[in-house]
Amino acid sequence: MENILELFELDFFQNAIFASVLCGIICGIIGTYIVAKRIVFISGGISHASFGGIGIAYYLGFTPMLGASIFAILSAIGITKFSKINNLRQDSIIGIFWSTGMAIGLLFIYISPGYVPNLMSYLFGNILSTSNTQLLLMLGLTIFIIAFFCIFMRPIYYIAFDKDYAQTNNKYSDILNTILICLVALSIVITINVIGIILSIAYLTIPQATANLFYNDFKKITLASSIICPIGSLCGLIIASIINLPPSASIILTFFSFFILAYLYKKIYTTRLKRTKSI
C-alpha cells in the first residue's frame, strides 16, 4: 500500500492521473454527440487515419501529436464531404480513410532514418508518458468543450437530431457542424495519447452506453457520461498501477464492468419494480 502512495508523489503518475480525468471529461461530452449521431464508425476511421499524420511528423521531425491532429481534422472533414457525394457510400469512404491513413503512417515510419519509435505506444496508448505540454493542451480543450457545449447545447442537440432541418432553420448550423466535427477529431487525438488508436473508441462509446441505460435525454446523458467517464478512467488507471497491468486495458475493462454492473442493476431493479406493482 505504501508503494501506491509513493506512486502518487511521482510527477509522471500525477500527470497520468490528470490526463485520465481530463480525457474522461472530454470524451464523456463529445462521445454523447458521437453516439447520439451514430458516427461511432466515422470516429474509428478518424482515429486510425491520424496514424498517417504521426508517421509524416516522425519523418519530417515535428511533434507526432500535431501531425495526428492535422490528419484527424482533415480526415473528419474529408469523410463528411465525400459522404455527401451520391455514388460514394459512407462506410466505404471510412474504410478508405481508415486503411490509407494507417498505410501512410507505416510507410513514413519505415523510411524515417535512425531511431524507430515504439509503435505499440501509439496503437495501445501510453498514458504514463503524458508530458506537461500535452496536459496543458488537454486542459485547454476540456475548458473549450465545456464552454462550447454549455453555450450552444440547444443548436448542437438539434444538429445531432436532424441536420437538414437545422440547416433550413439556421444559417449558422453549417459552421457549428464543422466545429463539432473538428472537436470530435481533436478529442480522438487526445484519446490516442491515453489509450491508443485501436482502443480510442472505448472512451467514446462505453460510458455513454452506460449513461444511456438510465437516461433517455441528450442533456442528461451528456452530463452523466461526463461524470462516469472520468471516474472509470481514473479507477482503471489506479487499478492498473496497483496490480501492474497495462493502463489502457485496465481502463477499458473498468468501463466495461461499469456497464455490466449498471445493466444488471437496471435489470434487477426493473423486475423488482414490476413484481411490486403486480402484488
Binding site: 447520439a36 451514430r38 453555450i151 450552444f152 440547444r154 443548436p155 442537440y157 438539434y158 445531432a160 437530431f161 436532424d162 437538414d164 432541418y165 437545422a166 432553420n169 439556421n170 449558422y172 457549428l176 444511456n212 437516461y215 433517455n216 435525454d217 441528450f218 446523458i221
Partner: peptide, 26 residues
Amino acid sequence: IFDKAFPISILEVVMSGLMSNKKLYQ
C-alpha cells in the same frame, strides 16, 4: 429519415422549430 432511437422528447422536437427565431445561445 429519422433515427427513431435518438434521445429527444416530443416537446423538444416541436420547440426546435423556433431555432430560426432565436440566437444560438438563447
